[in-house]
Structures are given as C-alpha cells and as structure tokens.
C-alpha cells in the first residue's frame, strides 16, 4: 500500500510536467494546426538557460523561472515571425512539419556543440530534503515545481478565458478567417501563441532542473509526451491537457510498479496508438 501511494504521488508529480508541456503544445496546435516537433527541445533550451543563469549569476533555479519564461517567449516569437509565419503561407503541411523538425535538430545539436554531451545538474541546498506526509515521502524540489506549475496552469487558463488577448487567441483557433474579418491581427496572434507555447516549455524545463539532469536530448521524451497529452486531452482544452498529463504520469508509474519499469515506454506508446485510433473511429461514427 505504501509503495502504491508513493507511486501515485510520483506519477502525479511527473504528470504535472507532461501537463505543462501539453498545454504549450495544445495552444500552438490549436491555433495554427501545426504539430510543434521542437517542443521537447524548447524544454531542453529552458533547462540550459536556467543552468547558465545559475552558473553566471548564482541564481536559484526557481528564481530563474520568470527570466527563462521571458527569454523563451522572445525566442518563440522570433522563430514564429522569421520562420513559421512565412511558411504558413505555402500551406504545405510537409514543409511546416520539417521546419519544426529541423528546428529541433538545430537546437539539440546546437546545445551539443555549445555545452558538450556531459550530464549537468544544478546543486541546491534543498535537493535532498524530503517532506513526509504520513506514508509517502515527497522530495522538496519536486513539490515546489508541482505547486509552481499548478499556479501557472491556472493563470494560463484564466488568461485564455477572460483576457481580451486570450479571447482573440481562442477566436483565431476556432476560425482564422472569421477572426481576421472582425479585425483581429492573426499574424500577431500567431507570434503571441508560439511565444506562449515555447515559454511554457521553457518554464517546464526550468522547473525540472531542480531534480533532473541536463543534457542535449533531455527534452525528447517530454516532447513526445506533450503530443500524447494534446491528443488525449482534446484540442484547445487547457483543463483537458492538464488531466491528460496527470493521467499519463500515473499510467507510467503504475505500469512501472505492476508490470516492469522497462515496459512503461512500450505501454505508453501502445496506449497512445489505441487512443488515436479509437478517437478517430468515434469521430467517424458521429458523422
């Protein structure tokens, strides 16, 4: 029972990151209908940014989060403005796909060139602190990260629901032509959305550094899980992405606990395929 509860908590804490990544991917996919294949690499860039800030200014990884978010927003906006928006005009899904794939290659190999393949960590005084709640132990960095990302998820949800910009983003995601007709600058919204998406990935990376190793391909598994979260949680739904992320985290730890840790990836991918196919079958049935 102890182990089961501990696994649940671990799954929940990890699932939070999948949620955050999924939300970023969801905003981008929802608005521009492109799959951002460099989302995991953006997380990795966020990790290295935190590492740099920590090394140069001696900042605590959690203090870096707002700075990383701002820098990543700028990076995302720049990429959208210079690369993706011009290619959106060609309407070629293949090109857009390989644009983000190429960006992913660029970022991960750029990190390899600059930082080398060594595994890095950010040592903190509280890294080994555990908080025990009855039968389960929660490492302090994981708990802080989880709380921060819950706050960010709620903030994002309110932003998209209530603010004018948020409403504009939702309008563009539902009908870009209609949005343009009522006077929304869709190009600006695209830049904003991609910026928000990459900023969320950067925040996730920054929050991970408290207890995760930093290396050039650290983001790959998170990037793919973000896609799973988008599909499972439903397009454009922030609460859906949140719960899908938690579900994914729990699924992984449960498989690791009851079957074998080495099978957790296999089960995740097979579950994903089944969900994709069943989802499409339901859509076809409805028609």
């Amino acid at each position: 029972m102890d182990i089961f509860l501990q696994a649940c908590v671990n799954g929940l804490l990890m699932g939070g990151f999948y949620s955050l990544m999924g939300m970023g991917q969801n905003v981008i996919f929802g608005v521009m209908k492109i799959v951002n294949f460099c989302h995991g690499e953006m997380l990795m860039v966020g990790m290295y940014l935190t590492y740099m800030l920590n090394q140069v200014f001696g900042m605590d990884p959690y203090l870096c989060v707002p700075f990383v978010a701002i820098i990543m927003f700028g990076l995302g906006a720049l990429i959208q403005h210079t690369l993706i928006t011009p290619s959106l005009g060609t309407k070629s899904f293949t090109n857009l796909l390989f644009l983000t794939v190429g960006l992913g290659l660029l970022l991960s190999n750029g990190a390899l060139v600059i930082f080398g393949s060594a595994y890095r960590t950010i040592p903190t005084s509280y890294a080994r602190t555990n908080i025990s709640l009855g039968m389960v132990n929660i490492p302090l960095p994981r708990l802080i990260s989880f709380l921060v990302l819950i706050v960010i998820s709620i903030a994002l949800f309110i932003f998209l629901k209530k603010s004018t910009t948020g409403k504009q983003i939702r309008a563009v995601s539902q009908n870009p032509v209609g949005a343009e007709v009522v006077g929304i600058n869709t190009k600006k919204i695209y830049v904003l959305t991609y910026g928000i998406g990459t900023a969320l990935a950067g925040i996730a990376g920054s929050l991970l550094t408290g207890f995760y190793t930093i290396y050039p391909t650290a983001g790959a598994s998170f990037g793919f899980r973000a896609l799973i979260v988008v599909v499972v949680g439903g397009l454009g739904s922030i609460p859906g992405a949140f719960f899908a992320g938690i579900f994914l985290g729990l699924l992984e730890t449960m498989v690791a606990l009851f079957v074998s840790p080495s099978y957790s990836d296999l089960i995740v991918f097979v579950t994903f395929i089944v969900i994709l196919v069943v989802r499409q079958l339901i859509i076809l049935r409805r028609k």
């Binding site: 190429g102 290659l105 660029l106 991960s108 190999n109 060139v113």
Partner: peptide, 12 residues
C-alpha cells in the same frame, strides 16, 4: 554535433 547542426541549417 556540428555536422547535424549544419545539416539542420541547410534543411531550414
């Protein structure tokens, strides 16, 4: 990693 970096740049 420099070879894949150049590769990515050519692709982009």
């Amino acid at each position: 990693g420099i070879n894949m970096l150049m590769y990515a740049i050519v692709l982009l």
